[in-house]
């Protein structure tokens, strides 16, 4: 099996690394300081495959804080990342259906 450190990664645009926080599963984004933020706007954004792979490797090395890390394409405006597709929009904003737990 190929080590994550040896894997190649091809990106098609600005890319951030996201995962789920270990203790509660909350969606988190890897920051430039290699910490984790619940705000996508604080995510480190890579524009080359090498940079994205470096972020991903940093994420995989921190599995005691966040798990299931992967590289996700993002949109960037004013230097801040935002979701580029429906899947990431749902991860950031939550399900597109209204909760009705009090019904």
């Amino acid at each position: 099996m190929t080590s994550p450190l040896q894997q190649k990664l091809k990106i098609t645009g600005p890319t951030a690394v996201t995962a789920n926080r270990l203790a509660d599963g909350v969606v988190v984004w890897l920051t430039a300081a290699h910490g984790w933020s619940t705000h996508i706007g604080e995510a480190a954004v890579a524009t080359t495959s090498e940079a994205a792979l470096a972020l991903l490797n940093a994420a995989h090395a921190d599995e005691n804080h966040a798990v299931g890390a992967y590289a996700a394409r993002v949109a960037v405006e004013d230097g801040r990342a935002s979701p580029a597709n429906l899947r990431e929009r749902i991860r950031v904003d939550g399900p597109t259906i209204a909760f009705d737990a009090a019904a």
């Binding site: 789920n20 509660d24 599963g25 909350v26 969606v27 798990v67 299931g68 749902i90 991860r91 399900p95």
Partner: peptide, 9 residues
């Protein structure tokens, strides 16, 4: 029976 899904376990 514990999965990791989009938002949470």
């Amino acid at each position: 029976g514990v999965y990791l899904q989009l938002h949470a376990y």
